[in-house]
Nucleic acid binder design. Sequence first.
DNA 1: CACTCGTTTCACAAAGTTGTGAAGACAGTG
DNA 2: CACTGTCTTCACAACTTTGTGAAACGAGTG
Lengths: 165, 165
Amino acid sequence: MAADDGHDPVHLFVERMALTFAEVGFPRMAARVLFTVMSADDPLTAAEIGERLGVSAAAVSGAVRYLTQFGMLIREPVPRSRRDRYRMPDNPWYEGTITKTAIYKTFIDVASSGVDALNGPQTPAGERVAEMRDFFIFVQEEIDSLGERWRIRRAQTGHLRPGEG
Amino acid sequence: MAADDGHDPVHLFVERMALTFAEVGFPRMAARVLFTVMSADDPLTAAEIGERLGVSAAAVSGAVRYLTQFGMLIREPVPRSRRDRYRMPDNPWYEGTITKTAIYKTFIDVASSGVDALNGPQTPAGERVAEMRDFFIFVQEEIDSLGERWRIRRAQTGHLRPGEG
DNA sequence: CACTCGTTTCACAAAGTTGTGAAGACAGTG
DNA sequence: CACTGTCTTCACAACTTTGTGAAACGAGTG
């Protein structure tokens, strides 16, 4: 079966989710591949991914390379075949994606250098930038602890996964 | 004084912060204008902004229109002059920028439609997507309360601002 | 060790984005 | 009511990003 015509609700979900991720800076093709695999009950080969999305093998190649780098996708060779299969990891990648992002750290570092450049928080400008920096520090701390709070909550609502608790 | 050569540490901060914001999807020129004004002790006119950044009046015009829309920048006419001045709002725009973002809502909505498309959380794929949806719901709740927790913390550390408390 | 099939790399083309210059609009002033 | 200075709009050009086709690569197989 070739790439569908876009009216399959699952494919619609894949494309919409990918677009939404792309909106926050995630590579578009990588997102499409990620959600294609996520939406499949069984692991997919590169060819199957390309077929479902109607994109070239080259595009799939680049996307899976990107995704496997961060453990968002797992590649495993198919026994007695040259193909590889791709599947989702058991531990949810989105926790790490949200909590391990270095972007707030960058905000904080750059803002700190800004405070210095403005000769400390004495001037109006320096004070504004210092306040922003402090806010980002706060957010960073909150995000750091978010993953753990999530796991606690899941445990409380009876959603323990193997290895957790 | 014309646009500096890029070695002014304040300008360096402006450009680096703007680049960092651009990385998470914020319009680049708008970010440059925002941090230029933020780094100035006094309000700036459109001409001054353009001069400091070395960009055209058109670029400034588009950027300030974008920024004032969300209250990240305040425009006020200069008495007995045709110029407008731009200054930072007193209430920090970044709180709202982070906490009022609709992006998690979109994640949740799209993921929900995905669960439906996959016939509920019974299948492996449906379960994965449902888990992701639940995580984003959790994050959304956390973000919703983040602004208030920040204000509480600021109050505790003696940083009350007018109107707060 | 040549063949085959799947994957990867690379140069390029298509598409999208962003900022510019120039013209236009608009408000205050003489 | 024409003039001047400021801001806005718009078509376009420069740049960036993204995915393709084609060729190269490489692992398994006879």
